[in-house]
């Protein structure tokens, strides 16, 4: 059969390929990146000689380049008190998460999130088992096209004091609590690790990958919260106060 006879079919297949060609959602990208990061922490890949040389080169002065999974986050943008970064995204993903009902979330995590938060409506509930006896929980709220995520971590969960790759951190007040507003550096992801110790003393760590502002605080009972979304900081703080 001559190629010309298949010409129309080949064109149709090309059209089909273009019809199937869709960019991944930001959430899909962040999930994959978080999964990749967590996988390296479980089984760290042995760095190649070339990679080690690159890291060494970076250490001696190529500060503008990102050269290592961890080191890349500690770039020159990490100076405190820089201008507020644009609100571009959120932290609405872990590497793995289970879709649950509101009651399952409450039973598992001990946290009863509001189904309405100002004009925001809870859309999805998720949990993530961190240790055999502890769950992290997340609720995603929507308002029009905007999304807002609230993470809840059990008492004694410890997040990185200085997450890698951020733009800056500002101390703000959320009701009675001192809170931190973490801002991204422009057009870059940053990673927040949260560690939890189980009843046997084993420390487990989960990562979330963010590309937007993240407001975190710890409540009196030791539970910690993180709120992120495509909203202005003032609004974020006001919403956080409704959660306390």
């Amino acid at each position: 059969m001559g190629e010309h006879e298949n010409g129309p079919l080949v064109r149709d297949l090309g059209d089909l390929g273009r019809a199937l060609d869709r960019p991944p959602s930001p959430s899909a990208v962040a999930t994959i990146v978080a999964a990749a990061l967590e996988s390296t922490e479980k089984a760290p890949p042995r760095p190649s000689r070339a990679r080690m040389l690159l890291v060494a080169a970076a250490v001696v002065g190529v500060l503008a380049l990102s050269v290592h999974t961890d080191d890349m986050f500690r770039g020159p943008q990490q100076d405190m008190g820089t201008a507020q970064a644009p609100v571009v995204g959120d932290c609405a993903t872990w590497a793995t998460m289970d879709v649950v009902t509101r009651s399952e979330l409450a039973d598992g995590s001990g946290w009863s999130p509001p189904s309405e938060l100002g004009p925001w409506t809870a859309k999805e509930y998720f949990t993530r088992r961190i240790t055999s006896d502890k769950l992290a929980a997340m609720v995603q709220y929507t308002h029009g096209d905007d999304t807002l995520s609230v993470e809840h971590y059990p008492p004694n969960a410890v997040a990185d004091a200085l997450p890698m790759g951020i733009g800056d951190i500002a101390v703000v007040q959320v009701g009675p609590y001192a809170a931190e507003m973490i801002r991204p550096s422009h057009d870059r992801y940053y990673r927040v690790n949260t560690s939890v110790t189980d009843k046997n003393g084993t420390v487990e760590r989960i990562s979330t990958v963010c590309d937007g502002n993240r407001l975190t605080w710890t409540a009196l009972d030791g539970s910690s919260y993180a709120l992120s979304g495509t909203i202005p900081e003032d609004t974020m703080i006001a919403l956080a106060e409704n959660l306390t």
Partner: peptide
Amino acid sequence: CAGDVSAFA
């Protein structure tokens, strides 16, 4: 290859 996560994204 050098582990830049934003580049991986």
